[in-house]
Design a protein around this nucleic acid. Structure first.
Length: 115
DNA sequence: CGATTGACACCAA
DNA sequence: ATTGGTGCCAATC
């Protein structure tokens, strides 16, 4: 339909998936983008995370990292240590902005959500 | 309206 | 394995 909310729906989906990420788990932008059907719009997912600071719903953006498991977006948090600290609290080991044992902590929406 | 940027990902050398 | 360049989508200037 002509509802302009169709575009907002994309962000809503991103937030919904990120909110479904269980503690102690992490996922990648590309995985979410692909799960939404956007294909290679991994960058657009990053934009959604940027807006996540303005939405009324708490979005655990710290659980979303790039496919390398690197905390590329920690700089966008209130504090640079905020992202790493939250991950460590949930039992994730982070060294030099790089998640250790990333693959073991990886959370795939296509699988975990039962697709 | 056109050009640039941005929390990524993939391919080629 | 590492580096560089390109593609995708949306927002901002």
């Amino acid at each position: 339909m002509s509802d302009p909310r169709d575009k907002e729906d994309f962000f809503e989906k991103v937030f919904a998936v990120v909110r479904e990420i269980p503690p102690g788990r992490v996922t990648s932008y590309g995985a979410i983008a692909k799960f939404l059907g956007s294909g290679g719009s991994a960058r657009t997912v990053g934009w959604a995370m940027n807006l996540s600071h303005q939405v009324s719903i708490p979005v655990p953006a710290h659980r979303v990292v790039n496919r390398n498991g690197q905390l590329t977006g920690k700089h966008h948090f209130s504090d640079a240590n905020e992202m790493q600290n939250r991950l460590e609290v949930e039992g994730i080991v982070v060294e030099e902005d790089q998640i250790q044992n990333f693959k073991s902590h990886y959370w795939d929406p296509q699988i975990e959500l039962g697709l």
